[in-house]
């Protein structure tokens, strides 16, 4: 698995295990799940929206084959906590040399992949009107380190207290 959410959200239940057994060179067999995203159908049914549910070549381009690509031709991108970083990548205006600073161009700690993916499903293939869809969770509850190992310090297990605001 490379990209977040492909198997979790787009691949239908009956193929999830099957998909997990395959390698990226076989991913073309699953292209229909990206091209005709079920999640868009569900959103339309539940919320009465009219997101595009077919011919989503924009999603195919990201998810098939399902490997995480990163553009190494650009300079370094901004990290979480730095000026210019947006958890929404290009949707939040965070681009480097015209390329999204974050997922689907690589994936940074702090990239809000759920909001990016759902917003892309709702807004594509044209992206002329960005329809924001998301989960209302806009930050990690722990702070990412600015130095190695970069990921956030794990929760202290034994204390197990509710995080104070």
């Amino acid at each position: 698995m490379g990209n977040p959410l492909f198997n979790e959200v787009l691949v239908a239940l009956r193929d999830k295990d099957n998909y997990n057994r395959r390698t990226p060179i076989e991913d073309a067999a699953f292209a229909t799940y990206a091209r005709n995203p079920e999640v868009a159908v569900l959103l339309n049914t539940v919320f009465g929206t009219s997101f595009a549910t077919a011919n989503r070549e924009d999603l195919v381009a990201v998810f098939i084959p399902d490997v995480l690509r990163v553009n190494t031709a650009t300079g370094p991108v901004q990290l979480a906590g730095q000026t210019g970083f947006s958890r929404l990548g290009f949707l939040g205006g965070d681009t480097t040399a015209g390329v999204s600073g974050g997922w689907p161009n690589g994936r940074r700690l702090g990239d809000d992949v759920v909001d990016i993916a759902l917003t892309a499903v709702a807004s594509g293939p044209a992206y002329s009107t960005i329809t924001v869809v998301g989960d209302n969770i806009n930050a990690n509850d722990q702070v990412y380190n600015q130095v190695f190992p970069y990921s956030a310090t794990p929760h202290a297990g034994p204390t197990n207290r509710k995080d104070p605001q």
Binding site: L91, I130, T131, V132
Partner: peptide
């Protein structure tokens, strides 16, 4: 509202 939640491109549109 979009700007407040970082959705800059949506706000611009």
């Amino acid at each position: 509202m979009h700007l407040a939640t970082g959705n800059l491109v949506a706000a611009e549109q």
